[in-house]
Simulated scan of single mutants.
Amino acid sequence: MPSAYSTKALTFTRFFRFFLIAAIGVLLASCTRQTAATVTLQGETMGTTYTVKYLADGISTPPEEIQQQLDALLEEVNRQMSTYRADSEISRFNQMHDTGKPMPVSADFAAVTAEALRLNALTNGALDITVGPLVNLWGFGPNKEITREPSATEIEQAAAQTGADKIILKQDGGNTLSKTRPDVYLDLSSIAKGFGVDKLAKHLEQAGIGNYLVEIGGELRGKGKNAQGEAWRVGIEQPAITQGTATQVIIPLDNRSLATSGDYRNFHVDQQGRRLSHIIHPHTRRPISHKLASISVVADSAATADGLSTALFVLGEEDALNLARKLDLAVLMIIRDNGGYRTEMSPAFQKLLQ
């Protein structure tokens, strides 16, 4: 079943190849595999795949039981936050037309929404979890056949439905969510994969596993060491369309998370032959048109890294780098430049490589 996490507004094509450099080498397609002290679990979730690696030394719980527990956690995330499930919490909120009426929501749903709203304020509105109506208007929603540019009136009408100020989250004395317009549509796909990574990582630690690497759809979190006694490492390459030899940047993930957002395959061409990105800037209300091809963010939590990579990609190379420097964010950008690509790193990212 398709998932909102891979196709809806503000969800970006993960077009970089991630190489999980660990003791067992290249990942295979089996569900459960064990080599030496390293266990690898794999499955499907949120319209993509997940991979979990951990060191089994001293862990008495069988890998099959741990995977069942992880699958149950991911199913709960989908039950709460998948817009492709009519019975999910987020779908029920989107279908609710009463304004100002608080809807009780789960603690996790509230926490993810709160983080999205925090990042919205931190990035001057670049991360907008209500931007779906504009994405649909430009032809990147369910109706993929829209190729004409919407009129100014249509854009204004869709924009009136968007904005973080149109949802009200309360977490004191219970978790509730309400809206100020009946047609407000919430989509957490720009942050939910990262939250799923954090959820699995927390469960592994509660199970006594201190050395692990978790990945969902390209979002990662690592802690401790691999079987070789080294920090888990991830390599990022440039897109396959790059000519010549691609440079790989190796990032250690010791109690850190990594998320990447980019725009390469998901676009369409309008009647005038213009390439329209599927990523809509909440301020201009139009598809973005900058030269930033990809941005990777390293942060403490995968949810934060996921949301920040989305927001910074919306901002574009110059504003993203300026904000990264101001907030001391670890950011790696790959920028289209004269038919090729060049990289830019924030000072915080450069420190990770030292």
Rank of each mutant, 00 (worst) to 15 (best):
M333C: 15
D306A: 02
R286A: 12
A330C: 04
A259G: 04
Q272S: 14
N338S: 12
P239H: 05
R286H: 14
F313V: 05
P282H: 10
R285C: 15
Q243G: 11
G235R: 06
D263R: 06
A302C: 08
A299L: 03
S294C: 12
V234T: 06
D300A: 12
F267T: 01
D270G: 09
S296L: 08
K326D: 11
A330Q: 05
V331K: 05
I236M: 08
R233Y: 00
S277H: 07
G262S: 12
I236A: 03
S261G: 08
S261Y: 07
L327V: 00
V297K: 03
D263V: 06
K326W: 03
E317H: 13
T242Y: 10
G307W: 01
Q238M: 08
P239F: 07
R256E: 06
V234I: 15
T260N: 09
A246Y: 00
T245E: 13
A324K: 03
L332S: 03
T242F: 05
L276Y: 04
A259D: 08
S301N: 02
H290R: 12
Q271R: 09
A330R: 00
S296I: 03
Q238N: 08
G316Q: 11
T284Y: 13
A240S: 11
S294V: 05
S289K: 14
A324W: 06
T245L: 10
I335L: 11
H268L: 12
R274N: 15
T304E: 07
Q248I: 11
P282M: 07
G273Y: 10
P252G: 06
V298Y: 01
D306V: 03
K291I: 02
Q238Y: 07
T245P: 01
D270T: 09
A293R: 15
G273S: 10
R336H: 13
T247R: 10
I251R: 06
A302P: 02
A302F: 00
L315K: 09
G235P: 00
V249I: 15
G273T: 11
G340R: 10
A293C: 14
S277E: 11
R285H: 15
V269D: 06
V298S: 02
R325M: 07
V298R: 02
V234G: 04
G262C: 10
S261D: 07
G235M: 01
T304I: 04
I334T: 10
T247S: 03
P287Q: 11
L258Y: 01
I241G: 02
L329T: 05
F313M: 14
D328R: 00
R274T: 13
G340Q: 14
E317L: 06
G340E: 08
Q248P: 00
L315T: 11
A302V: 02
G235F: 01
L258D: 04
L312V: 06
A303R: 04
Q272T: 13
S261T: 00
Y341R: 05
A299M: 04
A293I: 07
T245D: 12
S301F: 01
L315D: 08
Q243V: 14
I279P: 01
R342H: 07
V298K: 03
E318N: 13
Q272G: 14
I236V: 15
A240D: 13
I334M: 08
A293Q: 14
V297Q: 03
S294K: 12
Y264F: 15
P282G: 01
G316V: 15
H290E: 13
R285Q: 15
F267L: 09
I335M: 14
T245F: 09
P239M: 06
R342D: 01
